[in-house]
Nucleic acid binder design. Structure first.
Lengths: 215, 215, 215, 215
DNA sequence: GATGAATGAGCCTTCATTCAT
DNA sequence: AATGAATGAAGGCTCATTCAT
């Protein structure tokens, strides 16, 4: 059990993370100042340094946990019963919803640049989770397309599929609407996009040309 | 005719724009300093202020022309002879290449937030060009899908198509590779993506369900 | 008799003073932080403020006792049996050793500037001890030179003698070596310096010219 | 010839160096802030960065030239005609006067710590000049004492002599009096001190014991 | 008595921008 | 037209100090 003081402390830390997350993504890591974060979090800028070594540490702490949550959720969806196409849709939707929910954080997760490459340990951790995420989606896609795991065409297919996912997220990253509003309004569009995508990929697979280098 | 002085003046201004363009695109607007631009342009940093009100004015002046160039190029591609599918591919590729070439600037063009909304006039101009751009792409798509301009399904199709374009650009926005490297390496993938997209959309159209809400 | 609580309290206070003394002397007053002192003392940094008004108060409390210890030691040395020359040497050596041991603190004791002049009481106290110290040395010197206490030549002699003492201390104030290392290595040099000094002063006294202005 | 602007610039630079010199020494390098220096110099703190890369560069620029000036002056005195004793006195007096004139800077010249050891080039330069200085004094002393350059006793003698010089300077470093006041008032004392010193050293040399380890 | 939480003041430094020439 | 000089605002960060428990 936590004392009242520890509770407040935890709350402060959370509000800092929340504020930093919002701001970093909304306006970019470099551009956001510690003082801005503090103001948004409702504390002094020095307080941030009690909880985080420096600005970069804030970024690090911000990056990992949400991704892990998403990974779990995707695991659950993939483990459920249902036809592969349904699973792919659900997983894709979950991914989109997550990214929109964490909105501008999105850049933080997938833009390698924003995390310094010096210290490998944490960096590796993020990359690991990220790769696991992409792996899951690729796996779902593979099942739908009925390709072997080693089929060279799978890489291109997943790349193309990711373009669309990434594009959806990017398109609405800076929207003023809430995630709920967006999902409510656009879920049909997203589902259609997934379907278009899958149909198109299936067509490509079934045709002779695979787009890589075979004649 | 320009006097010698006016020529030199014009030259200075051009070299400043050139330098700023190079640097903004190469390292990002926020990160580049006025002194850097001046050094690259071969003049004093104070000279920049003779030609441009401030750093942001530099950005404004820089934003429009490339977009217009792109618009012209897309016009040319669309006006050329050839099957619609080929045209769509070429126009899409041109769009992608442009966005990757202007990389960090990309956000500036399409992310409404990053351009101050205070002064509407230039903002409007950019928006106009931007909309013209999207219009061209939609038009190409419409021809391929053989839809009427007013067909309600066109909106969804173009949305989905844009998701992919946007996604491609976003994916490589922060890559360290040059445009040429990226295009050299990934053009086949991009073309495949366009094709997949188009095939999928065609399939959707030809099926009864249009993904919106009709029964 | 002290209650257990009072004992603990006293202990904490002592450990703070000990830690502060070590750190101030070792790395300099300005550079040492309250948190460092607290860590070294094994308590929270806020605890320090229970016992001492502020960082400077810590310094004040720290300054006096060692000086008094030195004064006592010099008294003991002067009171012992032995030829005056031997006593002067011993007292001088004790003085040097003390100053080097308290190294960075040295400035604090003798450089009037570094102690705030606002609150006179403690300042005065330090000055009193300091003057007593110099008095003892002068006295030892006087005995060696066989001068009357009022002899005007004594002032110049003691001044000159102090130059050397002060010079020795200054020379090694910023050395990285420990007191023990320094004393071990340089004691013969110091003793030689004292002797040279005394011989030179004796020569001056015995000559007609006293260096001031008498003919 | 300098333009008016260049003159002002030079003046600003000088006033910054002057202010920094005064403050660094008066209150210590670490403790003095750039804003203090700026205020004392009568300019904005950012102006300092126009002339000096950073705080440490200021220190570097401050250290070398005066020392070189002193070195030249000592050379001149040593090269002049006169008995060795007279030369030693003059050189010693010049040294003292210089140190008092540059007052608190003194610490900067001789306290190795204050100059970062990272970059060796400038550091070396200072050390070279400093060593040359001490070399000159030692040389003058050697002539007076009629010792061979290699005589092991010379080292100790020069050390002892330096103690006094260093002590004189240290004693008056924080005095409020001007160098002229001090020299006017105390020159006789200083001369007496040199003489006492020399007499004492001569006595030591002429006796059997040299203070090191011989019996 | 003791402590973790929190903060304001302040430090060095950089940058866009203006002023005087 | 062009420039060197100069500056205010701001940024990341640290530290002595206070407050509430």
């Amino acid at each position: 059990m936590l004392t009242k003081q520890e509770q407040r402390s935890e709350e402060t830390k959370r509000s800092i993370l929340l504020a930093a997350g919002r701001l970093f993504a909304g306006r970019g890591y470099d551009v956001v100042t510690m003082r801005e974060i503090a103001k948004e979090a409702g504390c002094s800028h020095t307080t941030i340094y009690i909880y985080f070594k420096d600005k970069e540490a804030l970024l690090q702490h911000l990056s990992l946990p949400p991704l892990q949550t998403l990974a779990s959720r995707m695991d659950a969806l993939l483990g459920s019963s249902g036809v592969p196409e349904e699973k792919l849709k659900n997983v894709s939707l979950a991914f989109i919803e997550f990214c929109l929910a964490n909105r501008n954080m999105y850049g933080l997760f997938f833009n390698v640049k924003s995390v310094r490459v010096d210290e490998q340990a944490p960096e590796l951790e993020i990359n690991k989770v990220r790769n696991r995420l992409f792996g899951k989606l690729t796996e779902a896609l593979q099942t739908c397309l009925r390709l072997e795991r080693e089929d060279e065409r799978l890489l291109m297919c997943s790349r193309i599929y990711f373009f669309t996912l990434h594009g959806i997220v990017s398109t609405y990253t800076f929207s003023e609407e809430s995630v709920d509003q967006l999902m409510g309004r656009l879920t049909p569009t997203f589902l259609a996009a997934f379907e278009v995508q899958l149909d198109g990929l299936k067509a490509m697979i079934s045709s002779n040309k695979n787009g890589v280098e075979r004649g």
